[in-house]
Design a protein around this nucleic acid. Structure first.
Lengths: 197, 197
DNA sequence: CCTACCGATCGGTAGG
DNA sequence: CCTACCGATCGGTAGG
C-alpha cells in the first residue's frame, strides 16, 4: 500500500467543492455529473474516486467534519477547559456560520435536516458528528461548573441544550431571512446565560 | 366560475400526502411519479391538478400552513392575548412536533433548511410563513409585557427569538437522535424564561 | 483518467 | 382522468 498524494489532493479539492454544494442544495442534490462538470472532470472520472454516490456523501461529511474541527473546535482547545473554552466554542461557531465557511451556511444544519428522517449510513454518520459536537459542548459546560465558573445550581446538560439552540436558530434565521441581526441575538442570549467575563 | 368540490377533496388528499412525504424526503424529493403511484393515480392525472412541480410544492406549503394553523395557532387564540396565549403557542408547537403531525417532524423545519439557500418562489413562500409565525410569537410576547405579565425589563423580540430556538432545537434533536427528552428540555427552558404560572 | 453507453426516473406533453 | 411518449438527467458500468 502506497500513498497517492496527487490523488489525495484532487480528492480534497473535489470534496471541498462537494461540501459547498451540499450545504446549498443538499447531499442528495449533490449530483456526480454536476460536480464533475463544475470541476472540469468527466463524470466517470470523478465517480472512480468514490465508487458510489453514498461513498461520495460519506466522504463529503468527513471533509466537512475536518473543516468544522479546524474552524470551530481546535482554536477553542487552546483555552483551558471550562468557561473560557466554552465561550470560544460558541463564538467560533457563530463566526463559522456568519462567515459562510460553507456557501449555504452550516453544512451540518442542512445535512441533518435533510437526513434526520431517512435511515441509512449517511444519517448515522451525521448523527455521530452531531453527538460528538453536543458532547464536547456538554462536557465543557460540566468542566466550567466543576471549576466554579458557573453557579452550582446550573444543570450543564440543560444549559448546553439551550446554547446549541441559540446557535442553530441564528444560522437558520440568517439564511432564511437574510437577517444578520440573528447572530447578535444569539450572542446576547448566550452571554445572558453565562457569568459576565 | 363554479367550484369543483370533488376535485378539491381529491386535491386535499393529494396535498396532505405530499406534505408528509416532503417532511421526510424534502420538497425536491417529492416527485410527481412517486406521489401518483402512492395514491393510485397516473402521473399525468396527478400532474393535471397542479401544472408544474413548483405549483405542487407551493400548494403543499399552503396545505401544511393550514394544518399548522389548525394544530398550533387556532387553539391558542382561544386564550386572551398575553402570557397565557404565549404558553399555549409554545405547548401546542411542541405537541405538534412530538405527535408527528407530519411524518418527518415539523414540515417547515425540513422545508426551510432545504430552501434557505435557493432563491425562488418556494423559498419566498416559506420565508413568508416563517415570518408570520415569528411575528405572531413576537407580538404575543409584546402583549404579555404590556399587560404586566412579564418583567418590564424584558426585551420581547429577544425573548421570542430564544423561545423559537428552543422549539426548533427540540424538533431537530428528537428527529436526529431519536431523543424524546429533547421536548422536556425545551419545556424546561421555556418555563424558566417565563414567570411561574 | 477518458468516451460511450446502460436502465431508471425525472418533469412535462400529446392526444384522447 | 388515462396511455404513450418526449428529452434530460440520474447513478453506475464497459472497455480502454
Amino acid at each position: 500500500m502506497v500513498g497517492r498524494p496527487q490523488n489525495d489532493q484532487a480528492r480534497q479539492t473535489i470534496l471541498r467543492r462537494a461540501a459547498d454544494i451540499a450545504s446549498q442544495d443538499g447531499l442528495e442534490g449533490l449530483s456526480i455529473g454536476r460536480l464533475a462538470t463544475d470541476l472540469g472532470l468527466s463524470k466517470s472520472g470523478l465517480f472512480g474516486y468514490f465508487g458510489s454516490k453514498e461513498e461520495l456523501q460519506l466522504a463529503t461529511i468527513r471533509t466537512a467534519t475536518a473543516i468544522f474541527l479546524d474552524e470551530v473546535v481546535k482554536p477553542a482547545l487552546a483555552a483551558p477547559p471550562g468557561l473560557s473554552r466554552l465561550r470560544l466554542l460558541l463564538d467560533n461557531w457563530l463566526s463559522y456560520s456568519e462567515r459562510r465557511v460553507f456557501a449555504g451556511g452550516c453544512f451540518f444544519a442542512s445535512a441533518n435536516a435533510e437526513f434526520d428522517a431517512r435511515p441509512g449510513r449517511v444519517r448515522d454518520a451525521l448523527t455521530t458528528a452531531a453527538r460528538d459536537w453536543n458532547r464536547l459542548l456538554t462536557e465543557t459546560t460540566h468542566e466550567a461548573r466543576a471549576r466554579g465558573e458557573l453557579p452550582a445550581e446550573t444543570d450543564p446538560d440543560q444549559l448546553a441544550f439551550e446554547l446549541v439552540a441559540f446557535l442553530q436558530a441564528a444560522n437558520a434565521a440568517s439564511l432564511l431571512h437574510d437577517d444578520p441581526t440573528a447572530y447578535h441575538r444569539a450572542r446576547t442570549a448566550a452571554h445572558a446565560r453565562l457569568p459576565t467575563p
